[in-house]
Nucleic acid binder design. Structure first.
Lengths: 134, 134
DNA sequence: GGCTTATGCTCTCCATTAGAAAGTAGGCAC
DNA sequence: GTGCCTACTTTCTAATGGAGAGCATAAGCC
């Protein structure tokens, strides 16, 4: 929690952020990056290195081609991945993380480990909640 | 990257995950947790401690009441927040993070700091991309 | 007795978005 | 020619998100 407060550069006295402009930008970045597909693709590329379009889709699993194209394009725009087109027939396009993408993947690492460690607690909590209300 | 690989408990040789069942569950958890509003609410509660409904909405900013209710309910179901109803008029309901929620907030801390540190790089990358294609 | 205020939640309507499936391009094997 | 391969692209439909109104409740005021 201390860490989180530090991270947001907040004023503990007022409970408000020092710079609302910075806050807005951070929220915007979070809004883009905290996307299910972005996280999943990031993780796939971090784990498997450079991969081509179809392979990324298979590794992610359950993503439509449209979302795959869209998300990869957005990640390319944000400088998270590099798109390499090999002008051959049939077409071959490879994607790999940039340095920026790698650092983001590392930042998300804590969330992955958290998810793995706490799956049971979440399932338990869910079952308890549903038993109470559902 | 090493860290990420470790996180997913993968087989470096095959590039596949050891247990597809675990992978599916982790992906499911990530799917829920890697939500813009979940992350934002988590951060607000981590930074400001226990808060009531309207205050959470104000602190998050730009969230509709429907989404606020919905996301808080889901977080409660997943055991991330505790919902305390004070039977007074007008109604007063307070939300605070559970231990589980706190640990998740800490896990996300790295992403926040990453976002703050790399806003400039993202904006630069975006401008370059848009200059090239847009 | 009404009228206002306050709060957390719900409901309804409309815009945006995600997903499934079919289509496109273009060289190559048959 | 027919079909294949791959990375998209388009189209159509289903799901989701957001804005705003409504609801329930009761104290406070006139």
């Amino acid at each position: 929690m201390t860490a989180v407060s530090t991270a947001r550069i907040s004023h503990p006295e007022t409970g408000e952020c020092a710079d609302p402009r910075v806050e807005a930008l951070v929220n915007d970045v979070i809004g883009r990056v905290a996307d299910k597909w972005t996280m999943l693709i990031l993780e796939v590329l971090a784990e498997h290195g450079e991969q081509r379009f179809t392979r990324v889709g298979d590794l992610v699993g359950g993503i439509s081609q449209k979302m795959l194209t869209q998300t990869l394009r957005q990640m390319e725009r944000d400088g998270l991945v590099v798109r390499t087109v090999h002008p051959v027939i049939p077409p071959k396009v490879e994607y790999r993380l940039t340095d920026l993408g790698v650092t983001l993947a590392e930042a998300f690492c804590g969330v992955w480990t958290w998810a793995e460690k706490n799956i049971d607690r979440i399932e338990t909590a869910r079952a308890a909640f549903d038993g109470r209300k559902g």
